[in-house]
Amino acid sequence: MTAGHERFIATDGVSKTYNPRRADPVRAVDTVTMHVDRGEVLVLEGPSGSGKTSLLSLIGCMSRPTAGRIVVDGRDVAKLAESELTMERRQRFGFIFQQFHLVADLPVIENVLVPLYPTELSLREMRRRAHAALGRFALDAKASRKVRTLSGGEQQRVAIARALVNDPQVVVADEPTAHLDRRLAEELLAILEDIHRDGRTVVIATHDPRIFDHPIVDRVLEMRDGRIVGERRR
């Protein structure tokens, strides 16, 4: 499926500075203007420390920029209150973290349910959705197992099921292949392709060539020192 050209997320001169009042402020994102089209697979590529994770969390409504505008689906989110930002995050985004960030002592199903707790869905409906998400990755049989008893690949699929359980429009993944061997990385890319086929937008931050050379990727933005220095379209 090719990307449409409808702007879904757009940043305009966005900057993010950490420790702004200290002597050594860190400007992780430096006046970046970019966009994500609806339904495309976009990769932010760059070495560690280049600011791609910071840009990813800005796009994912996880933090607010120090300067600039971010428009998500027509709404300026740069100045939203924290609670509004949370609502955006809850309704539109699914996250896959570098270290999965699963709760090891909880059963698989509970981990997948976490994003649904603060909604008004009934427990029955929550469970239905969680089972559907797990079923997609052949994890339904292991729903009541503790996460710590699963293999790395299975844990990764639980993390992805969790990212999809709230039916997000955008899936954001931060270094998803960082700790994976070739086989698991292949598997992950296959899953991402599958997610993309649902019509979801996918944004990935990575420095792994296995990803940005993959055929599902529509566009690659190169980042260095908090700036975008290049764009490759496939």
Binding site: P20, R64, P65, T66, A67, K79, A81, E82
Partner: peptide, 9 residues
């Protein structure tokens, strides 16, 4: 409220 500085956050 119109500011998006770290202080305001």
């Amino acid at each position: 409220f119109s500011s998006s500085s770290a202080t305001q956050l």
